[in-house]
Amino acid sequence: MAPIKNTDTTVREYIITVFTENQVGVLGRITSIFTRRKINIESLKVSETPVKGISMFTIHAFTTEDMACRILSGIERIIEVLRADKYRTDEFTAQQIALYKVSPELFRKGGDACLREHNARVIEINPAYVVLERTGAKEEIDALRDYLSGSGMLMQFTHSENIVLHDASVENALNEIAGRGSYLGD
């Protein structure tokens, strides 16, 4: 009965997708909503959607459910924001793509087994180095990195942000606002 909020303090990874008018300053407004609460943005991608003038932001951050809700409603309040959604990565299949540049020595030390075990494949091979690629959950990506660096063979490593299957589409965002008056053509 008491109107006490349920404040689950578990910190989880969230992906927040935002569709906005493509205008100067929106990025600053969005990041300020995170920074004023001292929440680090782990990764951020901004690009124009297939619909001209509409941008999509994909933001990863670790926070609690309560905070994620506040952040989301803060973002929705930005004048230029058309629609925002949040997803918990542990509720979806989140995958990353990673590239590992390793010493060719790998194949002298049982590289095939390593490739099989880690579900990785070779995408480039030359006398100086070998490039491996794998797709997987962050832990899996990290496990291969740790193995390779532990054995002294890792030369370079890079990975993408998490990609999650979600239903945030520019069509949904546009449906949301269909029928609202347009002004300034923006």
């Binding site: 009965m1 909020k5 349920n6 929705e76």
Partner: peptide, 22 residues
């Protein structure tokens, strides 16, 4: 706060809903 109460919140700004009290 208001331990016995149900709460109806009439508010134009969705940010305020459930911000401090459920």
């Amino acid at each position: 706060y208001a331990p016995k109460a149900k709460v109806i919140h009439i508010e134009i700004d969705p940010v305020e809903i459930d911000k401090n009290v459920r």
